[in-house]
Computed example of a mutant assay.
Amino acid sequence: MDLLNNSTNTLIQSALSASTMRQNTISENIANVDTPNYKAKKTIFNHELHKAINNSLSAKRTDNRHVEFGGQGLNGMPAQIIKRSNTQMNHNGNNVDIDLEMAELAKNQIYYNALIDRLNGRYNSIRTVLGQGR
């Protein structure tokens, strides 16, 4: 059993990377709030959970009439940056909504901190087991 490079740690590290990418995308949107014709972007990575489900859950179908199992149709793509299309255009052709971006920034920071806390908890548990914790 690998204590450091297991599927849970890999998933958390992947989510941290995606959250960092989202932070950069939001920062870019905020920096270009007054840039004419700039189109806001967003980073999507909720499929990481589905990727983990695909990799960890499996079942054997004994009959063709049975329903597929294990997250059919989820392909585990990396985080992606797409153009945000659900916001209204400003007078200069820019569609950055500063209130939305600030809310997304706060949400992403909370998500990132939760991931860091979870990863630290996992490492602290390992340290405790090895006799170096309290």
Score class of each variant (00 low, 15 high):
Met1Pro: 00
Met1Ala: 00
Leu3Gly: 07
Leu4Phe: 09
Leu4Ser: 07
Asn6Trp: 02
Asn9Leu: 05
Asn9Gln: 09
Asn9Thr: 14
Leu11Ala: 09
Ile12Val: 15
Leu16Arg: 09
Ala18Ser: 12
Ala18Leu: 09
Arg22Trp: 10
Arg22Glu: 10
Thr25Cys: 04
Thr25Val: 15
Ile26Val: 15
Ser27Cys: 00
Ser27Ala: 03
Ser27Pro: 00
Asn29Pro: 06
Ile30Val: 13
Ile30His: 06
Ala31Ile: 12
Val33Asp: 13
Val33His: 13
Val33Met: 13
Asp34Leu: 09
Thr35Asn: 08
Asn37Pro: 01
Ala40Ile: 04
Lys42Ala: 05
Thr43Arg: 07
Asn46Met: 04
Glu48Tyr: 14
Glu48Gln: 12
Leu49Ala: 10
Leu49Ser: 10
Ala52His: 02
Asn54Trp: 01
Ala59Arg: 08
Arg61Trp: 01
Thr62Arg: 05
Asp63Gln: 05
Asn64Phe: 10
Arg65Met: 10
Arg65Ser: 13
Gly71Lys: 04
Gly71Leu: 02
Gln72Ile: 12
Gly73Ala: 05
Leu74Gln: 08
Asn75Ile: 15
Pro78Ala: 00
Ile82Arg: 00
Ile82Asn: 01
Ile82Ala: 01
Lys83Asn: 04
Ser85Thr: 14
Asn86Met: 00
Gln88Gly: 02
Gln88Glu: 07
Gln88Pro: 01
Met89Cys: 02
Met89Arg: 02
Met89Ala: 02
Asn94Met: 06
Asp97Gln: 05
Asp99Ala: 09
Leu100Gln: 08
Glu101Asn: 08
Met102His: 05
Ala103Gly: 02
Ala103Pro: 01
Leu105Arg: 10
Leu105His: 07
Ala106Gln: 09
Ile110Gln: 12
Tyr112Glu: 01
Tyr112Gln: 01
Leu115Ile: 14
Ile116Trp: 04
Ile116Arg: 07
Ile116Phe: 11
Arg118Trp: 06
Leu119Phe: 12
Leu119Gly: 08
Gly121Phe: 08
Tyr123Ala: 12
Tyr123Phe: 14
Asn124Lys: 14
Ile126Asp: 07
Arg127Gly: 14
Gly131Lys: 10
Gln132Glu: 15
Gln132Pro: 02
Arg134Val: 15
